[in-house]
């Protein structure tokens, strides 16, 4: 999958992780390169969301074996915020409500932290550190909110408080748009969305994806993949990736269902 002459951008190798001594991930291997869109599918409880959390650095999970390398650098020991500043982004399946923290204030802090880190890195490499001014931030936020068809009043609301399912997912993609990650993981971003909202969110993701970004789209259903077209499809069961292929695999899965696959997998 990866160009062997280049360091893969995002490389998960033999990843084992557990929560409260229960092993959930049992040796996951997955590589995502720049410009690639990967879909990760699988039944409930197969470990997809756990993988997403572990990649982002959730403290409840313990990695017992394996590695995650981002641009050749092991990120396992990094705090979640450090990973985010490096360019890893997780769109949460269930975004957290944080009362009293306004969207605008939260976004400004996130953008300041991530972009400043990037600017400093650029400066260290001999480039020019360009930090964002408050005015630039406001303009950027407005522009990205328009892209996701979000009302201006959104910015003054408390973080995810009283948001509908669709609003929460849009807010996640808004964050992705503002932080411009190079590796984005979307955890069931399609769940809880009606057809129209699904289109808006998918259009938003497609507008952001490009040759510089790697995308891992976690979903149960083919329908999201009609909008966000994957280059590769991986199927996860019982903490491992059991099957891999091109976009046709998702269609096959849709037709056969996980049960058939489970039976095949058990038989092997």
């Amino acid at each position: 999958m990866a160009d062997s002459t280049q360091t893969p951008m995002f490389e998960i190798e033999n990843l084992h992780a557990s929560i409260e001594d229960k092993e959930i991930l049992k040796g996951v291997n997955l590589t995502v390169n720049r410009g690639e869109i990967h879909a990760l599918m699988g039944p409930n409880g197969s470990g997809k969301s756990t993988l997403a959390y572990v990649l982002a650095g959730h403290p409840a999970y313990e990695v017992t074996e394996g590695s995650i390398r981002f641009n050749g650098e092991d990120i396992l020991e990094m705090e979640p915020d450090e990973r985010a500043r490096k360019g890893v982004f997780l769109a949460f399946q269930y975004p957290t409500v944080i009362p009293g923290v306004s969207m605008a204030n939260f976004l400004r802090m996130a953008v300041t932290n991530v972009r400043n880190a990037r600017a400093e890195e650029a400066a260290a490499d001999g480039g020019v550190a360009q930090k964002m001014t408050p005015r630039e931030f406001r303009r950027l936020m407005k522009e990205k909110m328009a892209l996701l068809k979000m009302d201006d009043a959104f910015a003054t609301r408390y973080l995810n408080e009283g948001f509908s399912g669709g609003e929460k997912k849009r807010a996640e993609i808004l964050q992705m748009a503002l932080l411009e990650p190079s590796m984005a993981i979307l955890d069931e971003t399609d769940s809880g969305l009606d057809i129209d909202a699904l289109r808006v969110v998918s259009d938003g993701v497609n507008a952001l994806a490009g040759p510089e970004m790697g995308l891992l789209v976690i979903t149960h259903y083919q329908r999201l993949l009609n909008h966000i077209k994957p280059d590769f499809v991986h199927i996860m069961m019982n903490g491992r990736i059991v099957q891999e292929g091109g976009p046709e695999l998702a269609l096959e899965l849709e037709a056969k269902g996980y049960e058939t696959l489970r039976a095949e997998f058990a038989a092997n």
Binding site: P80, T96, S102, A110, L159
Partner: peptide
């Protein structure tokens, strides 16, 4: 709540700043 801190950290905000933001949010209303 650790989940709140993790969410903010996942957006690049360091832990101490995340805690500050949460405490300010607690008083904000």
């Amino acid at each position: 709540e650790e989940e709140h801190i993790f969410y903010l950290q996942a957006r690049g905000i360091p832990r101490t700043e995340a805690q500050k933001l949460i405490v300010e949010g607690f008083f904000r209303p």
